[in-house]
Design a binder for these strands. Structure first.
Length: 494
RNA sequence: GGCAUCAUGGCCGAGUGGCUAGGCAGAGGUCUGCAAAACCUUCUACAGCGGUUCGAAUCCGCUUGAUGCCUCCA
């Protein structure tokens, strides 16, 4: 019996601007597409937030027993800034700066992306297709769009006729824009443009002589327009209509709007049932961005080598921090907020470790079943991780009370409490128990400290407090804190 | 300029008409040789002004402020 039969998800659909009950096209199976990174530089924390938001969605759907096909692309084809009219291709630009072949640039940053996501303990998607690997599919869509009358060729480039599309479709329905307003408000001078209207976008762009990334096509040696790859790859792997399409809020317009236009014009049907948009991670109150430099890289966060934070933070703490805010809210990245999350996270982990020390009774004084469902209700309500985490802290409070003997619990309920805590913390949130240690060096250190604790306890028993306090204080100096508890002394590395 | 979104206690951050999350910090307590740690308790907020309502942080209007998109960006 799959969990999803009893847990009803409501999710916020950007297209309808409201929460809707989630019903997949095929019962028990979910198709989800998420726009991945453009690999011309290291992913920054802002990029990571989006991918971690959808990792949570992926993990929760899987937890509920759905068979999920999660497709997240790698944009490795160079696209021009300014809609292909002029400007630079970021991948080519980077290749020049680093004196690398464009595909070397792509490889380098794809590897970085994968390593980073692995550090965050994000699950890899089911399929991770690349734009350059799907040129043929993209050309096929362009041909189809021309045939349907929505694409027109000019000097070897092909553009999408937004005005024509808008005559019998609603261009702008996702981002809440009216084409008339866009035309009225446009500042662009249409003088030297190949496009019929400034709102039109490139489907295929003829390569200038200096443009290295190029492929043959019926129209010219060139490269695909920037919105095409997602339409091609989502259609190929998930079908003409699929369940969930996700991405960062900043992709809503024009990227996702154009995806809808391309799909509707070529397939005559709406491509996506539920559009999900993750909100931005800000720094100093401003959106993190590759181009403006207002960002922090994961590596800088983990090492502590940056001007923003006072100390280093582990990937799991950073993730926990992000999940303490809802994915649709803007979240500001700051040292104080991270420190607060770190302390909270450690408290949660301590409680989890205490589970083993709880003894059971005949009856429970706690209502574990209700608490458990509250955890599910939180996630069912548009993946509300902050509420879930609040309930997990409630669970931690239960554990502490049980440990103190202030509450009682039956063996069945204890099992339920433990399973639920573990399921949400590790399977759904994908957090990692960094205190668990386990490597050889850590074990040796642990043995040495145990010895010191023993010596200190002997000194204390003999009321030789000078010795015992020296041990305690010197260890504190090197970053090892002793914690005297009721059942003996433990330690933690700070 | 256009289109959106947001404004919550010392800080971070949920919550969308009455039952008033959670974390951090602060305060008090338990424990302890002392301390730290840990645990417990506690602090009761919703930008301003007006309106709707028996009742609004939550709905409507205006004002102020911030942010996002309209150029590549998660």
């Amino acid at each position: 019996m799959s969990l999803y039969k009893n847990q009803n998800i409501q999710l916020y659909n950007s297209l309808t601007k409201q929460k809707e009950p989630f019903t997949p096209i095929h019962e028990g199976a979910v198709g989800m597409y998420v726009c991945g990174p453009t690999v011309y530089s290291n992913v920054h924390m802002g990029n990571c937030r989006t991918f971690l938001s959808f990792d949570l969605v992926f993990r929760y759907l899987k937890h509920l027993g759905y068979k999920v096909r999660y497709v997240r692309n790698i944009t490795d084809a160079g696209h021009l800034e300014n809609d292909g009219e002029s400007g630079d291709d970021p991948i080519l630009k980077k290749a020049r700066i680093e004196q690398l072949e464009p595909m070397e640039v792509v490889q380098k940053y794809t590897v970085d992306f994968h390593e980073t996501m692995a550090k965050f303990n994000a699950l890899p998607p089911s399929i991770e297709p690349t734009a350059t690997g799907h040129i043929i599919e993209q050309i096929a869509i362009v041909e189809k769009l021309i045939k349907e009358g929505y694409g027109y060729e000019k000097n070897g480039s092909v553009y999408f006729d937004v005005v024509k599309f808008n005559e019998d479709h609603a261009y702008g329905k996702l981002s809440g824009r009216q084409l008339e307003d866009m035309i009225t408000n446009t500042r662009e001078l249409a003088a030297q443009s190949e496009k019929k209207n400034p709102q039109d976008f490139a489907l295929w762009k003829k390569a200038e002589p200096q443009h290295i990334m190029r492929w043959p096509s019926p129209w010219s040696e060139g490269f695909p327009g920037w919105h095409l790859e997602c339409t091609a790859m989502s259609t190929k792997y998930l079908g003409e209509t699929f369940d969930i399409h996700g991405g960062g809020m900043d992709l809503k317009f024009p990227h996702h709007e154009c995806e809808i236009a391309q799909a509707e014009a070529s397939n005559h049907k709406s491509p996506v049932n539920y559009w999900l948009h993750a909100n931005m991670l800000t720094l100093n109150g401003k959106k993190m961005s590759k181009s403006t430099g207002n960002n922090i890289l994961p590596g800088e966060l983990f090492s502590g080598e940056n001007d923003i934070l006072k100390k280093a933070f582990t990937p799991t703490v950073a993730k926990f921090f992000m999940y303490q805010a809802h994915y649709r809210s803007i979240l500001d990245f700051s040292n104080d907020a991270l420190e607060a999350s770190e302390k909270g996270f450690n408290r949660l982990m301590d409680a989890l470790h205490s589970l083993a020390e709880i003894s059971t009774s005949e009856n429970s004084s706690l209502d574990i079943a209700t608490w458990k469902q509250a955890c599910y209700d939180a996630m069912n309500d548009d993946f509300n991780s902050p509420i879930l985490i609040a309930h997990l802290f409630e669970g931690a409070k239960y554990i502490n009370a049980l440990k103190e003997g202030k509450e009682t619990i039956s063996a069945t309920d204890l099992q339920e409490l433990s399973t639920t805590m573990h399921a949400f913390i590790f399977d759904v949130l994908g957090l990692e128990d960094t205190q668990a240690g386990g490597d050889e060096a850590a074990e040796k250190l642990s043995g040495a400290i145990e010895l010191l604790i023993e010596l200190r306890n002997k000194a204390r028993a003999n009321k030789d407090f000078a010795t015992s306090d020296t041990i305690r204080d010197e260890l504190q100096e090197v970053g090892i804190q002793l914690k005297d508890g009721k059942d003996g002394t433990t330690f933690s590395l700070s």
